[in-house]
Amino acid sequence: MFLKKTVPFLITLGMGLFTFTYYFVPHKLMQNMWDMVSDWAIIIGGGALAVGAVSMIRTYYKKAMTKSDPNRYYSMITIVCVFLMAIIGFITGIKPGSLFNDLFIHVMAPCESTMFSLLSFYIASAAFRSFRLKSFSAGLLLFSAIIVMLAQIPTGETISAAIPGLNIPLIKTWLLNYPNVAAQRAILIGVAIGSVATALKIILGIDKSVFAGAGGK
């Protein structure tokens, strides 16, 4: 229990107090210590990546070996790709012009772009569901959305020119700059204060659930 609870708590307490002090103390001594701690974080991150890779390979290997799983071929492809990229990286290097880099740019990057482009379709389907006029709040959302969308396209200006006194782009700017910013800042202030409280509870060991293996209390 000492290694599972007390040691993580002491490390968290020490690092929490150090980080708090670092924010207010610009002295070179603190800066040097911070740089050293940052280096430790990079080293730990590198080690953790190896642990992560082992975990991923173990998970997909188990899936690939489960004959009853109809999706096991996807896991096989994943494992083959992981090892193939690692081997190619070791042989050709990862600099621009290497096979590894070419594979990354011509296979990985387009795949990622494809996933990103799915957003536009998902935005349409999400908008279709959320803009249904079910209540007064939903009505306000629908009204604001119509204004903002109209202002984004030339139609907004055309309608504004046709109806005297109506300026859709101006209403859009007001909606985005005032009600929207006010709501966002309210959330941000809450988040900032919540962060202080959460950090305090973790640093002082009041909330031990994040200490690995503590089992919640």
């Binding site: 991923m56 998970t59 795949c111 990622e112 772009s113 996933m115």
Partner: peptide
């Protein structure tokens, strides 16, 4: 398990 460190992956 660890999946990947690429956002869209």
């Amino acid at each position: 398990y660890f999946l990947t460190q690429r956002q869209f992956a």
